[in-house]
């Protein structure tokens, strides 16, 4: 073949094959992380930022390495994740149940609309003082905030889902004499499930934010509290290490929830990525 005298235009160069290589994405991603760490390190070593307040990447990562083998660290992680899980599950169950009840009736849907739209945007952190008054610095404080914040995320998605139920499918089910429960089980539930999973995925991220917030601000035991303690005690490096740890937990939750979504919805024709949240 004589592909020599190729007309090299800008476009031809831009679409150079190596950047389309399947491994190019992940490799560049790793390169990006390394680059980021290098910039961080350089900025602190050259004194561009004050290392007293912004320790070098190597120092923080070394501390993180120490944390990872420390029982105290894992105990804090455990406490945070416990409130995260309990909060998320409680919110999930409550929101799903309520969502199905409201969603199954046009009347309920219409009458609750304004109230839901009013309660949903209330920032959950507004409840912090109330939580402190009611529960003090116990885990219940965290739970109250987590549940409140995650509840709306899931409820809204479940309501979208129940609204999406095909009316023809519903009529068919009715005409075959399927009862209320059977209709929920075989028509409403499969339609709503993708929305529910999306809601859970969004709520999982929100729940982590609120778990850390409650610990940070109220002082409920967990990673957030450790961060606050290190900050007030002036232990800068451990604080940074914990912040990085929370970020890693966040990434892990995001990846985990996306995998769950993929797994549960494998049978679903249109993997819903485009739901407006």
């Amino acid at each position: 073949m004589h592909v020599t005298e190729a007309v090299t235009t800008q476009r031809a160069r831009r679409a150079s094959p190596w950047s389309q290589h399947p491994l190019a994405g992940p490799l560049l991603g790793v390169a990006g992380i390394v680059l980021f760490l290098l910039i961080w390190e350089a900025a602190t070593r050259t004194g561009l930022v004050n290392p007293k307040f912004f320790p070098p990447a190597t120092v923080v990562l070394a501390q993180l390495g120490q944390d990872l083998v420390s029982a105290d660290f894992w105990a804090s992680v455990g406490l945070t994740m416990r409130s995260w899980l309990i909060g998320l599950l409680s919110a999930g169950i409550a929101a799903t149940a309520l969502g199905f009840i409201i969603g199954s009736s046009t009347f309920l849907r219409r009458i609750t609309h304004s109230t839901i739209e009013f309660l949903r945007p209330i920032p959950s952190v507004a409840l912090i003082p109330l939580a402190v008054l009611l529960f003090g610095i116990k885990m219940e404080s965290s739970l109250m905030l987590i549940i409140y914040a995650s509840f709306w995320q899931i409820l809204i998605q479940v309501l979208y889902g129940t609204a999406d139920v095909d009316s023809v499918a519903m009529d068919t089910a009715k005409s075959y004499g399927l009862g209320w429960w059977a209709r929920i089980r075989y028509v409403v539930w499969p339609t709503t499930l993708p929305y529910l999973i999306t809601g859970l995925r969004l709520a999982a991220a929100v729940a982590l934010i609120l778990a850390i917030t409650a610990e940070l601000v109220i002082g409920a035991p967990g990673l957030g509290k450790e961060i606050a303690l290190n900050q007030s005690g002036g232990s800068v490096v451990p604080m940074y290490s914990l912040v990085v740890a929370t970020g890693l937990i966040g990434v892990a939750i995001n990846i985990g929830m996306r995998l769950l979504e993929k797994r549960v919805l494998r049978w679903h024709s249109s993997q819903r990525g485009d739901v407006i949240v």
Partner: peptide
């Protein structure tokens, strides 16, 4: 491609922990 994982990490950091940090 270069920035994707780094950005994902930043997004995953629960924003409230930035308060003590930036303080």
């Amino acid at each position: 491609q270069l920035s994707e994982p780094v950005l994902e990490f930043f997004r995953a950091i629960p924003p409230p922990v930035l308060v003590p940090l930036l303080m």
